[in-house]
Amino acid sequence: MKRTARLNCFRCLFAFAIAVVSAPALSQTCAAPIEYTYSPVSGNTCNSTRNLPYLANGAIVNGGPDIVYHGYLLSTTSIYAALEGVDNLSLYVCRGPCGTYSTCLAVIDSVAFAAYPTTIYPAAPGDYYFIVGSASGVCGTYTLYLWTPSPNE
């Protein structure tokens, strides 16, 4: 079976080094996002706060506490994402800079007991922020799966 690279291809060790140097262990905001280095990751937004109430210049309202992951896309490619978790969590896939004025490519709502992969394409090179929050304001546990194709795919 052909293996595909995960988002640890996102600026790879360079990004990880930044995270190690600048981010406290529990940082998960735009200022200090969690570097997405390996799929999947799990978390609980109830342990966070609502740092990003608005995205896409206010077009998107995030009603719940949020956790921010960062990755860097080296070339134009598709991103494959799946959010598995409690009902009504939302995954916002946004371009940098991170914050209220991010341009968001996709929003994926979790459905309890069902998780679907979503392909987001094409995605241009650059910084991406994967924000787990909730449009409806709930919080809870989740597992976030992210991949990009390997360069030779």
Binding site: R3, T4, P117, T119, E153
Partner: peptide, 15 residues
């Protein structure tokens, strides 16, 4: 449509 695809991104499905 989401189909099982061992060659797809993520190694399990494509859409």
């Amino acid at each position: 449509l989401t189909a099982a695809n061992a060659l797809g991104v993520g190694g399990v499905a494509s859409q």
